[in-house]
Design a protein around this nucleic acid. Structure first.
Lengths: 229, 229
DNA sequence: CGCATTCTTGAAACGCCTCAAACTTGGTGG
DNA sequence: CCACCAAGTTTGAGGCGTTTCAAGAATGCG
């Protein structure tokens, strides 16, 4: 745990909660945040069953969320990149329902939800941001269901790459150079296919000049073609 | 459109927003609701692209939400039974992103979201209810992704039946007698399989004594076995 | 550097989809 | 009231995409 968090000086403030707040609001928001959490690759930011107290924003690194079914199977329900918000799915049950696992050595800002909630009562724009986050997550999951339900493996992989690209772009990172820190197994699990199918699809895309694969680093060479599969 | 909505006298109030409010709060909540909407089978409650102004609670009947992809394909993203809440996915974009279509002749209460939002500022329990609804929808979609991603067609159909059963049970309806007003095509689309596979799976379940099929009416004879597939 | 993990690629097997035809249901009008 | 028609459902046969199983190659962390 680190202390002394200053949103004002944070390089990521324009892609985080403070982005919709004015200076005095940001200062009040900053007041409820007192630390960050360092999480090593493979370690958990929070676990299924934990009391829901905080939501988190990765400042360095990235995470996956994993839901364990009753039958012992595990399913990757999402990936969370720098500046995105994790933990919201625990609100309704007051407990987290997934494990959040770091895909690389990571650091996340810790936002106490109860204090955030009372702050929202006085700052409508903050409230609206929370709604947006929740609603966007519903839209994202719906999108995921479409991918899984009505697309071929090839289309799903293409949609996945474009989705990551767009999310990186929205946070001013390169939209062509992706570092996929999750394994092929994670991607396959998330997309509802085997890791072999993911690997084979990457290879086929590369052969056709749509992408370039160098281990976990993938270059999108022809995003348009990916979108038209 | 009907007028004169009185939550106090509504038979469904214990499974709706007012359930977590005291009498005076309920009365204020009631104040922002001034009508219901009647929607005939196959007609839309709202359409993708519509400005997001209201959320809805079916009082009679049920709905499906359909997302149209760019490529012209349509995908069923959810079913909404009596007392459940529709329309939340439009919050983030200020526009609805799906078409909400009545599965039978239906009536829904219309809740103006902006007024609901300001009411929330003064009634924390109402606020928490909204959070719960949003968060529960995320959980529901995540569950849906698991179904689509890592289950066989048989398991998906079983999970679907048990899910509907549980949701009816949560609203004090029979958990064994289901009226599925959606078509086999809708179910298949939602579950990521063809309507033929849905039909074949129902037939197989019936042959094995797990359910009884009489057109759209399905009886769960062995819920435990369905859960163990 | 070495070992565990991850990734790639191949061949065979299986589950679901596609196409097709017959049957059932429910709403409409003669 | 029944015939009719459209919409929805059931069932079968064959084909295809994805999975499974397996073995070797490439990463990358300690």
């Amino acid at each position: 745990m680190e202390t002394c968090v200053h949103c004002l000086n944070c390089k990521l403030r324009h892609m985080c909660f403070p982005s919709m707040l004015n200076q005095s609001e940001m200062s009040r928001f900053n007041g409820i945040i007192d630390h960050r959490r360092k999480v090593r690759r493979g370690q958990r930011l929070y676990s299924a069953g934990d009391t829901f107290q905080n939501i988190y924003v990765p400042r360095i690194g990235s995470f996956k969320t994993v839901l364990s079914s009753e039958h012992g199977a595990e399913h990757v329900t999402g990936f969370y990149l720098i500046g995105e918000t994790l933990g919201l799915s625990g609100i309704s049950t007051k407990r987290h329902i997934v494990n959040a696992i770091a895909l690389e050595d990571s650091v996340a800002c810790v936002i106490p939800f109860q204090q955030l909630e009372s702050l929202c009562r006085e700052m409508p724009r903050l409230q609206q941001h929370i709604y947006k986050l929740l609603s966007a997550e519903i839209a994202q999951k719906s999108q995921g269901m479409i991918q899984l339900g009505s697309m071929t493996a090839e289309q799903r992989v293409a949609a996945f790459l474009l989705n990551i690209s767009a999310r990186l772009g929205a946070r001013s990172y390169s939209i062509t150079e992706l570092s996929l820190h999750m394994t092929r197994g994670d991607i396959g699990n998330y997309l509802g296919m085997t890791l072999e199918t993911v690997s084979r699809t990457f290879s086929r895309f590369q052969k056709n000049g749509l992408i370039r694969v160098r281990g976990k680093n993938i270059t999108l060479s022809d995003a348009h073609a990916l979108n038209c599969l």
